[in-house]
Amino acid sequence: MSRAFPAARRRSRAAGPSPPGAGAPSIATVPFPNWTAVLRFLPCLRAVLVAGACVAAACGRPDARAAGRPSGPAAVLGVDDFGDTVRAAPPPARIVSLNPTTTELLFALGAGGRLVGRTHWDVYPDAARAVADLGDGLRPNVEAVLAARPALVILYASADNRAAAAAFRRAGVPVVALKIDRVAQFAAASRLLGRVVGDSAAGAVTADTVLATIARVRAATAGRPRVRALWPLFDDPLYVIGGGSYLSELMDAAGADNVFGDLPQPSPQVAREEALRRNADVVFSSPAGARRMAREAGWASLAAVRTGRVYAVDSSLVLRPGVRLGEAAVMLAERLGAAAGPVR
C-alpha cells in the first residue's frame, strides 16, 4: 500500500483529523463540520437530476467525438451513490474533490496533480495542502467550485449534497457522488475513480491491496481469543463507533468485537452508563482521549481501564476510510498483541 502511496508515510502528525465543530454524528466518517446541510433543495430534485444527467451526457459526447471515438452514448463506467450513471469520457484534467477520503484516494491513484480544489479538511497527503481550499464538503460553496473550472466534481454522497450536485450538472460539470463509510464502499469507490481518471488498474490495485491486507489481518487473528472493544470518539456527550462504521469492521478483523456493534449508525451517541454496563476489555481512542480516560473517575470501573488496556491510536491513520485502511487494521491487531505481519 505504501508503495502505491509513498506520501502516506510522510504525513504530518500535527493536524487533528476532525475539524472544530465536527462534533458528532459523523465525526468518524465525514470529517466536515456538522452544521451544514439543506432541507429545501429536495423539491424539484428528480427533474433537475434528470436534466443534469442529460447535461453531463451531452457535454461528454462532443469530447468523445473529438477524441475520435464513435458517437452515441458513452460506455457506462458505473453508478455513483446518488444512483446516477457515470459514463466514460476523456479522463478529466481538472478535478475538484470535496471529501478528504477521495482527495487522498486520488493522490494514491496518481491523479493528485489534476486536483484544482479540495475541502478545508483535506490535508492528507501533505501534497493536498497545496491544492486550493474551497471550503466545506457538505453544502459546498458552488460558486467557488465552479470558479475553479473543474471538468469533474467528486462529492460525498450525503442527501444534503444533492442540491450542489444538481447545481454542478446544471452548469455542465459532471459529478460523481460517493458514500464511503464502509470498507466495501471504499473498495468500490477506488475501482470507480480508477476508471474515471483513466487508470482502472491503479483503482483495482488500491482496492485489492486494502482488502487483501484486511483479510490477512483477519486470518492472523482468527485463532486468538476475541476481546470486547469500545471506541469513544467524543467525550461529552459520548459518541462511540457503532456497527455502521468501517472502524467496527477493522476492529472485527483485528480480533475485537465492538461492544456497540449492534447499533447501525456509524457513530451513535450513547449514554455513559450504557458504555460502562457493556464493560469493554479494551478501548481504542485518540491519545488525548486515552489520557482523559485514565484520569477520569467515571471510567475507573471499566475493565479496560483497570487492566491498562486503553490504546491510543494515531488519529491520522484511522479517522478516514481511505487508502490506509489495511495499515489501520494491522495497527489495531498489533495493539491487541497479534502479529499480523508487515504492511504490504
Binding site: A24, P25, S26, V30, N34, W35, T36, A37, V38, L39, R40, F41, L138, R139, S158, A159, D160, A163, Q265
Partner: peptide
C-alpha cells in the same frame, strides 16, 4: 435522525439563502 437530516435542521435554524 440521520446525520444529514440533523445538519439540515441546524442549518434551517440559522437561516440561509444559499440553496
Amino acid at each position: 435522525a440521520p446525520a444529514d437530516q440533523v445538519r439540515g435542521a441546524l442549518w434551517w435554524m440559522m437561516g440561509s439563502v444559499a440553496g
